[in-house]
Amino acid sequence: MAKTKIPVYDIYSIIPGHTQQDLLMERLGPYVQKHQHLHSQHGHSFYHLVLFTKGAGTHTIDFTHFTVQPYQVYFMIPGQVHSWHFEGGVEGYLVHFSPAFFQSFLNDQQYLARFDFFKGDSEAAVLKIPATLRETVVQLFEHMLQELEKPRESGLDMIRTYLLQFFIQLERSTATGMRHNIPPQKQLLLNNFQQLIHQHYNTIRLPKEYAELLYITPNHLNALCQDLLGKTAGEVIRDRVLLEAKRLLVNKELTITEIAWHLNFQDNSYFNRFFKKNTGLTPEAFRKQFSH
Rank of each mutant, 00 (worst) to 15 (best):
L28P: 10
S40R: 15
K276E: 13
K5F: 06
L229N: 08
G177V: 04
V68L: 09
F167C: 05
V126I: 15
R114F: 09
W84E: 10
F274W: 09
I256H: 03
F63N: 02
I15C: 05
Q199T: 12
F193W: 04
L242W: 05
T282M: 02
Q187E: 14
R240C: 07
E147H: 12
F117L: 04
E244T: 09
A260G: 08
A233P: 00
E258W: 10
I204W: 08
P7S: 02
E258N: 06
E153D: 12
G88H: 06
I259T: 11
H198K: 11
D116R: 15
Y31W: 15
P78K: 01
T136K: 13
E209T: 12
V68H: 03
V236T: 11
Y201F: 13
A223W: 00
F118V: 11
F167R: 01
S173R: 05
D116E: 12
T136Y: 14
L206N: 05
F274G: 03
E142C: 02
A124Y: 06
F193A: 04
M25W: 03
I216Q: 01
H85Y: 10
F166Q: 00
A131M: 08
R134P: 11
I237C: 05
E209D: 15
F265W: 03
S98A: 15
M25A: 12
G79T: 10
V138Y: 00
P78V: 03
H39R: 13
Q110E: 14
A223S: 13
E235K: 07
M144D: 07
M25G: 02
P30H: 09
W84S: 13
M76L: 13
T136D: 11
H37L: 10
Q80M: 13
K277M: 12
H42Y: 07
I14M: 09
D108T: 14
S45V: 08
V241C: 09
K5M: 08
L248H: 14
K34W: 00
Q72F: 05
F52Q: 04
F193L: 08
L248K: 14
L145G: 02
Q169Y: 07
F275M: 07
P130N: 05
P151H: 04
F46Y: 12
Q169T: 15
I61A: 02
L214E: 05
Q20E: 15
H292D: 13
I6P: 14
P207T: 10
I61Q: 02
P99K: 02
T203N: 11
H180L: 14
Q266Y: 15
R240S: 10
T176D: 09
L23C: 08
T232V: 00
Y162T: 04
Q20K: 12
L214S: 04
L148P: 06
A211R: 04
R152Q: 15
L249T: 13
F286P: 04
V73Y: 07
A131H: 13
I15N: 02
I182C: 07
Y12E: 06
L51G: 02
L112C: 07
A233N: 05
E235N: 06
L164S: 09
M178S: 11
F193K: 01
Y111M: 14
Q109L: 05
I204T: 12
